[in-house]
Design a protein around this nucleic acid. Structure first.
Lengths: 98, 98
DNA sequence: CAGCATTTGTACGTATGTATG
DNA sequence: ACATACATACGTACAAATGCT
């Protein structure tokens, strides 16, 4: 049996107590902390996140807003959303505390 | 002619360049800074703000979210939205810088 | 240069859930 | 039980910025 670095991509649970937008924020934060999403042009588009997690745009944008407030990511209209310079470091810090 | 302390209540301009939710946030912030909205149970309900400024709930909630981030207000489900302890002081600080 | 597709931003509406009084 | 008020979550439409053709 071959062990790989791959894991099941975390998914939002629509029935969980935690709001889906917080779940998505946590998932993305962990992916940033783990380096799975690295600096540069990384975060999938809102459209992709909507499709992958079966969410409305509202929830996706709320999740990204949380990460923006935490200065893990930055968005640029017409281009996309990026992990900030020290995004991974910040995400690691925050992941520790939780 | 009698001078009063009353002034025209500032209103959102739907045709301005600045997004209406930022306009509303600025209006409320100034009202807090001026003491027109004091600590305690102050901020009008979302419903009232929607009607007074002819805005959708989205815009009203975005405006309040900005003030929450700035720690000027706090909201409690079922009760309402309140100016924080040091809300006026904070609002004054921010009003200076703008 | 114009035109087009992509992507984020703003703004509206609606429905339902949760907390308070 | 009920009304009020904020929270979550879905949807739509259009605007603005970017990059490509």
């Amino acid at each position: 049996m071959v062990m790989t670095e791959e894991r099941e991509a975390a998914r939002v649970n629509h029935d969980a107590a935690m709001p889906v937008y917080r779940q998505l924020a946590a998932i993305l934060r962990d992916q940033i902390a783990s380096g799975h999403l690295a600096a540069g042009r990384v975060i999938p588009t809102e459209k992709v996140l909507m499709e992958v997690h079966d969410l409305g745009r509202d929830s996706v944008r709320k999740a990204l807003a949380l990460l923006r407030e935490a200065q893990l990511i930055e968005s640029v209209p017409g281009r996309g959303t990026f992990v900030t310079e020290n995004g991974q470091a910040l995400a690691l810090e925050q992941a520790k505390g939780q």
